[in-house]
Write a protein that binds this DNA or RNA. Structure first.
Length: 385
DNA sequence: GTTACCGGGTTCTGCCATGTAG
DNA sequence: CTACATGGCAGAACCCGGTAAC
């Protein structure tokens, strides 16, 4: 197959970003003269440590300090912001307050991403409008901002944001999934359009090289199965796909199926991690008397098993086997490994007390939500076994 | 009515490195 | 030279329930 070659061709070839000329004004607004109204050279209470130049805007520091911003942290993170003559902190504060953010939240946002105070009123309005085109309320936006200020403020390119929204929509990603993307991985929308496009093209090329017919649908499916894909590097995703294909010796058909289902979940694992976990799984199964073919089978049945760290996985397998379960049952139904060691142990204990026979009844009883498990237990008790 | 299959929910930011515009 | 914009990285589960299949 020519996959390797195609993947190679997709390496970030100079990854030139065709930056569009955006006409949005990104300069400080005129309403912040109050920076200059206060001239305080006396009180040095609001520390001015470690920055030899002493050219920071003192009144800015005070204003932020009063608001509750962790000024030290902010300065450490983006010192340049504090040497600017003009900033729009009051505009930002008013803006966010009007959107329903508390002062605590605003202070925390500025502490973590000080550059936010350099964004103009017009810029903020427009960016908010674009985010709101995906979210249902201001409150939702505030929640994400509080969680990840950087995702919202890192880029000043609203045009790029708009293009991203159009691009992802044009792939057939539905509003509901756009909502999921922006909620769970907001950084996607601050990526350059070119970067997102490169990832989508990588996925589409994988699909085509595997003989798939609808590569756009393939990309859409993978992204919707794993919303974090687009904030990963193509290098990582590509090496993970290459690894899965070769390590599991997948046929084209198997690969297409796997990647569009549970396989998508593990594509954003750190590559080293994937390899380590894979190796550990192989070794562990070998020590339990299983062949490599069986390891393959297990992964094909439930790829996210590679997400589980070696230590945890070994513990889970050990406790199931000590509980009298045949490894072959686990290979058939690896999803039981989804549950925590604690839960598994508890359930094994409960079932043993009733003399439950896994050989006769299988192990799917372990793979139930706690509600369903409770019901099941009650019925078993009524029946006397 | 049970079991099997499947997909979804939560959450994944905060830092550093690099290239570039001014 | 500096600040900004952007790419990339580490870290690594557990659980729920709708509904199709029997």
């Amino acid at each position: 197959m020519a996959l390797r070659q195609i993947l190679f061709l997709l390496r970030p070839h100079g990854s030139r970003i065709s930056r569009s000329v955006t006409v949005f004004k990104c300069f400080s607004t005129t309403k912040t003269d109050y920076n200059e109204t206060e001239t305080d050279f006396s009180g040095d209470k609001t520390d001015s440590s470690s920055h030899g130049s002493g050219s920071e805007n003192k009144s800015l520091l005070e204003n932020l300090s009063v608001l509750g911003v962790d000024v030290q942290m902010a300065q450490r993170r983006q010192p340049g912001v504090f040497r600017k003559i003009q900033t729009n902190e009051q505009g930002l504060i008013d803006f966010l307050e009007q959107k329903g953010a508390s002062l605590d939240i605003i202070a925390s946002i500025i502490s973590r991403f000080p550059r936010a105070i350099t964004r103009s009123e017009e810029h903020l309005e427009e960016r908010w409008r674009l985010w709101r085109s995906i979210f249902n309320s201001d409150a939702e936006v505030v929640k994400i901002l509080n969680r990840s200020p950087e995702s919202f403020f890192r880029s000043s390119d609203n045009g790029n944001l708009e293009k991203n929204i159009h691009y992802l929509s044009s792939l057939g990603i539905k509003p509901k999934d756009l909502h999921r993307l922006l909620t769970m991985a907001p950084r996607i929308f601050s990526n350059s359009l070119a970067l997102n496009r490169t990832m989508v093209e990588l996925l589409e090329n994988v699909c085509m090289s595997l003989g798939g017919t609808d590569s756009e649908k393939f990309a859409r499916t993978v992204i919707s199965r794993n919303v974090y894909i687009l904030i990963r590097s193509t290098k990582r995703v590509r090496s993970n796909i290459e690894f899965l294909l070769s390590a599991l010796e997948l046929s084209d058909e198997e690969a297409l199926k796997l990647l569009q289902s549970h396989g998508a979940k593990i594509l954003d694992l750190s590559h080293e991690n994937m390899k380590t976990n894979f190796r550990n799984l192989q070794l562990k199964l070998k020590s339990l008397g299983c062949s490599q073919v069986q390891a393959r089978e297990l992964i094909l049945n439930y790829a996210p098993i590679l997400f589980v760290s070696s230590d945890t996985l070994n513990q889970k397998l050990d406790c199931l086997i000590e509980g009298g379960i045949d490894i072959r049952r686990i290979i058939e139904k690896p999803k039981v490994l989804d549950y925590s060691v604690t839960t598994l142990k508890q359930r094994l204990q409960d079932l043993h007390q009733l003399g439950y026979n896994f050989k006769v009844n299988g192990i799917s009883v372990l793979d139930l939500s706690s509600k369903r498990f409770k019901c099941k237990m009650e019925k078993l008790r009524e029946l006397g076994v």
